[in-house]
Design a protein around this nucleic acid. Structure first.
Lengths: 151, 151
DNA sequence: TTTTTTTATTTGTATATACAAATGTTATTA
DNA sequence: TAATAACATTTGTATATACAAATAAAAAAA
């Protein structure tokens, strides 16, 4: 659906405005679909994100600011996010012995297991929308989004 | 910044995944910047959205489901959003005389005034990122986002 | 006309998010 | 060394969001 139909807009719209609305609406479609996948696993998108970051550490502990920095949307509350993961035994948390201000967060085997379970579904989700585009268009879309942001 | 730098990702990433992350990250940049503008007006992005929809009604009342339907992200709580606007005298609300299940929501002069104040800033915001693209690229980006979604 | 179904909105509750202030630790400087 | 500043994280609070259940009115069916 074109964005004008989505918003039931009657008046013609500036193309700059259309880009903004297209990005916002596309994001909400992507997120809704992804949350649908996560639902049966009882974790939120942000929690999944943290787990993915921790797996990426390949055994090295991550601290709070490192996790925060690697997240897409700056959540401002990594503590409570990690709290939730801790309750489900997806991560461990301990004070860093060298610098007791820092916290070392590690993913557990249970956390790795749930990610492994999710992996094929996540890949399928990532490719779902891209299937509508040719490989040239995919490259072009990435290029334009990055150029759009650069300022 | 390329999305890999944003996420400090070391491993190469599939282009489909890149699109998803690019859209999510771009949306969060757009929203952050827009919230910055709204901050001094003491309304949230969603509240602004409702006001814009009401102005688009050109004097005709809107009911709750109509507002909900026209919003980008399905908020599931138009009632409380309208509550907030009511407290600030940006809207009026009354029961529809023909069908007492329905609610008639109208924007007030005060609501119209704040929108008018915001209008130039909103336009500036909409064009801010697009300035990085040529007019052909702007058209192309809209086209690709709509094609990407279509499925 | 009573009962049932559908429609429109509101409310309850749990969780998420934003932002500022507070806490505890380490580093710097007077 | 004591005081101050910087750093890393946590906590408090207000608001936002998601989802289900509740309410209330109107329409349809028995």
């Amino acid at each position: 659906m074109k964005i004008e139909e989505v918003l039931k807009s009657t008046v013609p719209m500036d193309n700059s405005k259309k880009i903004i609305l297209n990005i916002l609406y596309t994001q909400s479609m992507i997120t809704d679909k992804f949350n649908e996948i996560l639902k049966s696993y009882d974790i939120s998108g942000e929690q999944y994100n943290v787990l993915r970051i921790l797996r990426g550490q390949k055994g090295n502990p991550a601290n709070m600011s490192m996790i925060q920095e690697r997240m897409l949307a700056k959540t401002s509350n990594t503590t409570r996010l990690v709290d939730k993961l801790l309750l489900k035994d997806f991560v461990t948390r301990k004070v860093c012995p060298e610098n007791r201000r820092k916290i070392e967060v590690l993913i557990t085997q249970k956390g790795l297991d749930i990610l492994k379970d999710l992996d094929p579904k996540v890949i399928q989700h990532e490719q779902f929308f891209s299937n509508n585009l040719s490989s040239d268009e995919i490259i072009q879309l990435n290029y334009l989004l990055e150029k759009f942001r650069n300022q």
